[in-house]
């Protein structure tokens, strides 16, 4: 069992053998606690939420307890609400999901949404944060040009000796830079084009995976 205590003392607990999806959820919750400045007193919203896969037997429960939030596999019979969706083929459940039980527990539902829904920030803001992380964590010497296919403005960063170009729709760029996808997945699916050396592609891809999973 892994427990990470935020500065505001809300511990996010995942199991030792947590799946990628559980780890992504833990990271999303941590990010949202930070973004919304949530402190321990929000945990007067106690209860469990089941995340039900519509395409497999793989389900997750998020339990909001008095001093921590626990993420584990399986379902709880007495969960207040359940969210369902198709997350086969992805490590990120994404949103929106179908919500059951919201009418009986509107405040808890609103709290859960606040915890689990990832904000969609402008892609330039996310890109700036991403490349600051590149600067800090990745051994590359790059000059980047990010060009959205549906906008005229571009984003440039760095002054290194390797020119790299990343293109794609602004919504795909937003997903990529804001921890909702990985570079290699976007490239393989043809949603993002990245022209760089193989090494840089690999290292940037690794960073997107680390950010998605909360491994940084």
């Amino acid at each position: 069992m892994k427990s990470e205590v935020m500065p505001d003392q809300i511990a996010i607990v995942t199991m030792d053998d947590a799946t990628p999806l559980e780890r992504v959820l833990a990271r999303v919750i941590r990010d949202n606690i930070k973004r919304h400045h949530l402190t321990l007193d929000v945990l007067h919203h106690q209860g469990q939420v089941n995340l039900i896969s519509t395409t497999s037997s793989f389900n997750i429960t998020v339990s909001c307890l008095a001093d921590k939030i626990v993420i584990q596999r399986g379902v709880q019979k007495d969960a207040k609400i359940s969210l369902s969706g198709d997350w086969a083929g992805t490590v990120n459940p994404g949103m929106p999901l179908k919500i059951k039980g919201r009418w009986q527990h509107p405040r808890f539902t609103a709290f859960i949404k606040q915890l689990l829904i990832q904000d969609r920030r402008p892609w330039q803001v996310a890109a700036q944060e991403f490349f600051e992380c590149v600067h800090e964590k990745v051994d590359v010497n790059i000059r980047v040009k990010v060009q959205p296919s549906n906008e005229t403005t571009c984003f440039e960063w760095g002054s290194g000796n390797e020119d790299i170009t990343i293109t794609g729709s602004s919504s795909n760029l937003q997903r990529l830079f804001d921890k909702q996808s990985t570079l290699i997945e976007e490239v393989v699916l043809g949603r993002i084009q990245c022209h760089s050396s193989l090494r840089t592609t690999a290292l940037l891809s690794e960073l997107t995976i680390n950010r998605l999973l909360g491994d940084l």
Binding site: S56, F58, A88, G89, T90
Partner: peptide, 14 residues
């Protein structure tokens, strides 16, 4: 490998 296994919708507890 772990990411690949999970990304294909496999249930690790099966």
């Amino acid at each position: 490998d772990w990411l690949n296994f999970n990304a294909k919708g496999n249930d690790p507890d099966d």
